[in-house]
Simulated assay, not measured.
Amino acid sequence: MNQTIDTILNHRSIRSFKDEPLTEEQISTIVQCAQAAATSSYLQVYSIIGVKEPVKKKKLAELAGNQEYVEDNGHFFVFCADLNRHKLAAELEGIPIENVIETLESTEKFMVGMIDAALAAQNAVIAAESMGLGICFIGGLRNNLPEVAKVLKTPDRVVPLFGLCVGVPDQQPGQKQRLPIDNVYHVDEYIQDESQFKQQLSNYNEDISDYYLKRTQGKRSHTWTEIVTGKMTKPVRMYMKDFLKSIKLPLK
């Protein structure tokens, strides 16, 4: 074990921050660490928007489902898949847009953008937490991407994927136990023993139920499978495909 591993294993989401803005040095360090992440074929298919303006943060908090910590934090980052830069690169090289449009509008390159952004964000998180800061990912921005895009003035082929609240923690919540490693890690091939998986999930359910009982002083005792099943039976953000088409990122 070392300090980096300790930082990673001590991760938890923070939803209450002290009223202390990040310094420019902290912001720059976090972004540089994000950029140090691996990127597919050196394409760097992502951008990061730092949101400082209080009015914009307030609006994004509303669009994300009235999550007040989107507004009240040390700094708010938005990670985007970005293929606009690659259109500009083609123009710089004098390559006609019709020669690259199939690639720019492919599902594969959109996936590369999502993966690149996620890798960069995780680097940013580890950097921030190693500095004693807390973080919280915000997927709620995807509740209304057309309005988020207006607030952030993102051009075609740029998709805001998720936000990241960063700041000085004003709470120390308990840490949620992850799935058993045997339920996640397979060797050589995907294990097909469903009875084994279900038993592991049943055991995990007991741990998670106990976690919620203690966290809520007995008011809640949901299991993990109960939580995820409830979410899967309620489709959300079903407009996404149409939105991606509207900004010239059709999935094909």
Rank of each mutant, 00 (worst) to 15 (best):
32 Q>R: 12
54 P>T: 02
29 T>A: 09
40 S>K: 08
74 G>T: 02
56 K>G: 00
59 K>N: 14
37 A>Q: 03
42 Y>A: 07
77 F>K: 07
57 K>E: 01
61 A>P: 06
52 K>G: 00
49 I>S: 14
26 Q>T: 11
78 V>E: 11
25 E>H: 07
68 E>C: 05
43 L>V: 12
58 K>V: 02
56 K>H: 13
63 L>D: 13
51 V>K: 02
51 V>W: 03
54 P>D: 09
66 N>G: 14
48 I>G: 05
71 E>R: 08
57 K>A: 00
63 L>I: 11
43 L>H: 11
38 A>V: 06
62 E>P: 06
55 V>M: 12
65 G>T: 06
70 V>M: 00
53 E>L: 04
26 Q>F: 11
57 K>S: 00
46 Y>R: 04
28 S>P: 06
48 I>V: 14
50 G>F: 01
63 L>T: 09
57 K>W: 00
33 C>K: 11
44 Q>W: 03
48 I>H: 11
60 L>V: 12
47 S>E: 12
28 S>I: 03
38 A>D: 10
57 K>G: 00
56 K>R: 12
71 E>N: 14
59 K>M: 14
45 V>A: 15
41 S>G: 00
55 V>T: 08
62 E>A: 12
63 L>G: 06
35 Q>S: 08
25 E>Q: 10
50 G>D: 02
39 T>V: 13
51 V>R: 01
51 V>S: 02
74 G>D: 07
38 A>F: 05
37 A>T: 13
68 E>N: 10
35 Q>H: 15
30 I>Y: 14
57 K>I: 02
77 F>V: 03
33 C>V: 07
69 Y>S: 07
42 Y>Q: 09
30 I>Q: 08
48 I>C: 02
67 Q>F: 02
63 L>H: 13
62 E>M: 10
52 K>A: 15
26 Q>R: 10
45 V>C: 12
61 A>C: 04
26 Q>I: 06
43 L>I: 12
26 Q>A: 15
36 A>W: 05
35 Q>R: 13
33 C>L: 13
29 T>D: 11
67 Q>R: 06
69 Y>M: 12
75 H>N: 09
53 E>Y: 02
78 V>K: 08
61 A>D: 13
28 S>H: 12
69 Y>K: 08
37 A>R: 02
40 S>P: 01
63 L>R: 05
32 Q>P: 03
45 V>Q: 15
26 Q>L: 13
58 K>M: 13
50 G>Q: 11
40 S>W: 13
71 E>I: 04
35 Q>I: 01
71 E>H: 13
76 F>C: 08
30 I>T: 05
29 T>C: 11
46 Y>M: 06
59 K>S: 10
66 N>L: 09
70 V>K: 02
75 H>I: 14
62 E>T: 14
52 K>W: 09
36 A>C: 06
26 Q>C: 05
68 E>V: 10
38 A>C: 09
62 E>Y: 06
58 K>N: 14
68 E>P: 01
66 N>T: 04
60 L>S: 10
78 V>Q: 13
75 H>Y: 14
30 I>W: 07
60 L>A: 05
41 S>M: 14
40 S>T: 14
62 E>L: 11
37 A>N: 04
78 V>S: 09
64 A>L: 04
53 E>S: 04
70 V>E: 01
64 A>F: 07
64 A>Q: 06
59 K>C: 07
51 V>M: 04
44 Q>H: 08
63 L>S: 08
27 I>N: 08
51 V>Q: 07
76 F>E: 01
63 L>W: 06
